[in-house]
Design a protein around this nucleic acid. Structure first.
Length: 660
DNA sequence: AGAAGGTTGTTCAA
DNA sequence: TTGAACAACCTTCT
C-alpha cells in the first residue's frame, strides 16, 4: 500500500531565508503535496523562537523569560526579516506566504498538525541549550500526534553536536582546538540551491485556487482554537517581561495576541505597534534576506578588502554608517544570511585577489570560526553557559552587582539592588554617561543603532568588568542583550567571559586604555563627536579626556564638564591598579562557577581575604569638582556611601549566616 | 614536565 | 616603526 503524500509544516526559527537552507531543502525533498511555511509568535517572550529561547511552558521556564531583554531594534529587525521572508515566499509561489500564528509553539503546533492534516514538521536545528530543550518538548508532542520531525543543521559551519562529540564532550576553549577538530571533519558544506517552487499550503482535498481563499480556509480550520491566555500582562506572571527592560520604550497597548492568526490580516506579520512600540524611522540596519545578500555581494566585489581583512586592525572608531567590519552579524544571527554561503563567497573573493592574504583566525572566515567555537562551547556546557553560577568554565570573581539567588539556588528576579555606587556606575555605563567619551560614544551608538564594532565591545566590556567598574559581566551581557540586534546566546556570553578574563582568555594584565586605545585608530575622535555631540567642539588633544581640559578650553568648546558632560565616574588608573590586584587574588583562589564555595556563598569572603578589599566601592569625587550641579550624580554625601557599605555588609553577613 | 602559543594592550626607548 | 618590559595568566602540544 502506498503511503500518503507528505504534508509538511516548515517551522522557521533561526533561518529567515530561502537561499542555502539545508532544512528547507530536506522539506522539499519529501516531495510534499502541501507546504505550510510557519512562524510561531510566542506570547511570553515575543521573539523567542528566533532567539532560540524557551517558551513559557511552565514556571521554571518563565524564570528564563524574566532575564531576557529585547529592545526595539531587535524586534524591528526581526519583523522586517519576517516580512521580507514572506515576500520571498510569495515571489516563488504567489499563493503562499509566511503563516504567522500567535501562540505557544508547544500548544499551537499540535493543533495545527491536526487541523491542517500535517504529517511532517521540518526545521533548522537549533543547537542552543534553550532551543534544544524546547525542541525536545515539541518532539514528544510530535510522537503523540504521529507527526515525523526532520531537523537539519544549518545555523553554523559545523554541527556543534558533532564537534562536541569529536571533542569528547568538552567545550572548545581555544580557536586552534576548534580548528584542529573541524580540520578532520572536512570542508564546510557548499551552499544548496534556493527553491524554484513551493507547494501550496492547502487543506486536504481543498480545491481553492485564489490566494485569499486559501488563507481564509486555513483560518477557518483554526476557528475555535483558544487564544493563548498567557499574555505577559495578565495572571500570576503579571510582569510585562519585555516592557520592564525596554526603558519606557513600550507605551502602546500590546495587541498582537488578540487573535491566533492575525484576524482580518490573515496570518500577517505583527507590527511594531502591536508589540507596544512605535516605528523607528531612523533605523540604519534593516532586516531581511535581500539586503543581506546584497551586502555580502557588495563586500565580495572588493576582493582586496575580503582577502586582506584583519580583525585586530579594523577600526572601532568608525561607526555604523561606514563600518570597518562587514555588519553582517545581525543577518547571520537571524539566519537571513547563510553562514556557509558567506564562507564560500568570501573564499571565492579571496581566490580572486593577487597578493598577500590574511588567514584564520584574524581573517573574515576566522571570525565565522569563532562563532562556531562559542556555539560548540555552549553546546558542551548547556544552560549554565550564559551565567556565572554553575558554569564550570567561568572563573569566579567577587564582582559587584552579581546575579542574586535564593537559598534553593533559584535566581531572584528582578535582581535586588546592589551597592549604590556600583548601581549608579552601571546606570551611567548603560546610558553613556560615564564621563569617558570613548565608552560613552560606543554605548550611545549601541543604544541608538543596535550595533557596536567588535573592538568597541571589547573596550566597554573590559571597562565594566575587570578594568574599572568591577561589575559582573552578567550585567553587561544583559545590556548587550537588550540593545544589540545581533545578540546571540553563545557568542555574547562567550565574549563577555573572554573580556572579563572569566574564560577563554586569561591575560588580565593586558587592558584597553580609555584614551590610548581609541587614539591608536583615530586621534581626532570622530566617533565621540558623532555620538557625544556636546563634546563636538573640543580640541583633539582633549577629545578622549575632556575633564583634563582647562576651564577656558571647556568654555570655548561650549561644554562645561560637570554641567554639560559628566565628570569621570571613577579614576581610570587607580581602579585599574586595584582591579589587577583583585584579579590576581581571584586567579589564586581558583574558584569556578560550579565550585562548592561559589554555590554555598563562601567564595567572596575567601577571595577578599586574599586581596584585602571589603565592602562596596567608594564614591569617586573628581578632584576639584564642585559637589553640587554634577550631571552624573557624583558628589553624593559621604553618609550615603557609608550607608550603602553598611547595608551591603549587613546583607553579606546575613547571607553567610544563612548558607552555612 | 616544560615549552610554545594565545585573533585584537601600553608605554617607553631606540 | 620595532622591540622589550611590564608581571606572569591560561591551554595545548611535545
Amino acid at each position: 500500500m502506498a503511503s500518503p503524500k507528505p504534508r509538511v509544516c516548515y517551522w522557521f526559527r533561526t533561518d529567515l531565508r530561502l537561499h542555502d537552507s539545508p532544512a528547507l531543502a530536506a522539506a522539499l525533498n519529501l516531495k510534499p503535496e502541501a507546504l505550510f511555511p510557519l512562524w510561531c509568535w510566542d506570547p511570553n517572550v515575543n521573539a523567542c523562537c528566533s532567539l532560540g529561547l524557551e517558551s513559557g511552558v511552565n514556571r521554571a521556564f518563565l524564570q528564563y523569560v524574566y532575564k531576557h531583554r529585547v529592545g526595539v531594534h531587535r524586534f524591528r529587525f526581526l519583523l522586517e526579516s519576517m516580512t521580507v521572508l514572506s515576500d520571498q515566499i510569495s515571489a516563488i509561489q504567489p499563493n503562499s506566504k509566511l503563516l504567522v500564528v500567535r501562540g505557544e509553539p508547544v500548544e499551537l503546533l499540535p493543533i495545527l498538525w491536526k487541523k491542517w492534516g500535517i504529517s511532517h514538521l521540518v526545521f533548522e536545528k537549533d543547537p542552543s541549550a534553550y532551543g534544544r530543550r524546547r525542541d525536545a518538548i515539541v518532539l514528544k508532542a510530535a510522537k503523540l500526534a504521529n507527526v515525523t520531525i526532520v531537523s537539519v543543521q544549518g545555523h553554523h559551519l559545523y554541527d556543534p553536536e558533532l564537534v562536541t562529540l569529536k571533542n569528547k564532550g568538552k567545550p572548545t576553549m581555544t580557536i586552534t582546538s576548534l580548528q584542529n577538530i573541524v580540520k578532520k571533519m572536512g570542508n564546510v558544506p557548499k551552499p544548496v540551491a534556493s527553491p524554484k517552487e513551493l507547494p501550496l499550503p492547502l487543506l486536504k482535498g481543498s480545491t481553492k485556487t485564489e490566494r485569499k481563499d486559501i488563507f481564509l480556509e486555513l483560518s477557518n480550520a483554526l476557528r475555535g482554537t483558544p487564544i493563548f491566555s498567557g499574555n505577559c500582562l495578565e495572571g500570576d506572571t503579571a510582569v510585562d517581561l519585555n516592557s520592564a527592560s525596554l526603558g519606557g520604550e513600550r507605551h502602546l497597548p500590546v495587541t498582537c495576541y488578540e487573535t491566533v492568526d492575525g484576524g482580518d490580516a490573515l496570518f500577517s506579520v505583527p507590527t511594531l505597534e502591536s508589540l507596544g512600540m512605535s516605528e523607528d524611522k531612523e533605523a540604519k540596519i534593516k532586516g531581511g534576506e535581500v539586503i543581506a545578500l546584497k551586502r555580502l555581494a557588495t563586500l565580495c566585489d572588493d576582493s582586496k578588502y575580503i582577502a586582506t581583512f584583519s580583525k585586530p586592525k579594523s577600526s572601532p572608531a568608525q561607526w555604523v554608517d561606514k563600518p570597518s567590519t562587514t555588519l553582517l552579524s545581525p543577518y547571520l544571527k537571524f539566519g537571513c544570511l547563510s553562514i556557509r554561503k558567506m564562507w564560500w563567497d568570501v573564499e571565492e573573493a579571496k581566490q580572486r585577489y593577487i597578493g598577500a592574504k590574511t588567514e584564520p583566525p584574524e581573517n573574515l572566515n576566522g571570525q565565522l570560526l569563532f562563532r562556531d567555537m562559542y556555539a560548540c562551547a555552549e553546546y558542551a556546557i548547556g544552560d549554565a553557559f550564559g551565567k556565572v553560577r554553575g558554569n564550570e568554565i567561568c572563573r569566579y570573581m567577587d564582582w559587584n552587582l552579581p546575579t542574586v539567588y535564593d537559598e534553593s539556588g533559584v535566581e531572584i528576579v528582578p535582581r535586588p539592588p546592589g551597592d549604590s555606587v556600583s548601581e549608579s556606575r552601571l546606570k551611567a555605563f548603560k546610558d553613556g554617561q560615564t564621563g569617558f567619551p570613548w565608552i560613552d560614544a560606543q554605548m550611545r551608538q549601541l543604544k541608538q543603532e543596535g550595533w557596536m564594532h567588535h573592538l568597541g565591545r571589547h573596550s566597554v566590556a573590559a571597562f565594566l568588568t575587570r578594568g574599572q567598574c568591577w561589575i559582573s559581566w552578567e550585567r553587561g551581557a544583559e545590556i548587550f542583550d537588550e540593545y544589540l540586534i545581533d545578540w546571540d546566546p553563545c557568542s555574547n556570553p562567550g565574549n563577555w567571559m573572554w573580556l572579563s578574563c572569566s574564560a577563554f582568555y586569561a591575560q588580565y594584565f593586558k587592558l584597553y586604555g580609555l584614551v590610548s586605545f581609541p587614539q591608536k585608530y583615530d586621534k581626532t575622535g570622530a566617533l565621540v563627536r558623532k555620538y557625544c555631540p556636546e563634546l563636538a567642539k573640543y580640541p583633539d588633544a582633549y577629545i578622549y579626556e575632556p575633564h583634563k581640559a582647562p576651564a577656558n578650553v571647556q568654555k570655548q568648546a561650549g561644554c562645561i564638564i560637570g554641567t554639560d558632560y559628566p565628570y569621570p565616574i571613577l579614576d581610570e588608573k587607580n581602579s585599574k591598579d586595584e582591579n589587577m590586584a583583585r584579579m590576581k587574588a581571584c586567579y589564586e583562589a581558583k574558584f569556578y562557577g560550579n565550585s562548592k564555595e561559589v554555590l554555598d556563598g563562601t567564595a567572596n569572603a575567601l577571595i577578599q581575604q586574599l586581596h584585602g578589599l571589603k565592602g562596596a566601592p567608594k564614591e569617586y569625587v573628581f578632584p576639584g569638582s564642585q559637589k553640587s550641579g554634577s550631571a552624573s550624580g557624583s558628589g553624593k554625601k559621604e553618609s550615603k556611601t557609608l550607608d550603602g557599605w553598611l547595608k551591603r555588609k549587613a546583607n553579606s553577613d546575613e547571607d553567610g549566616g544563612r548558607k552555612k
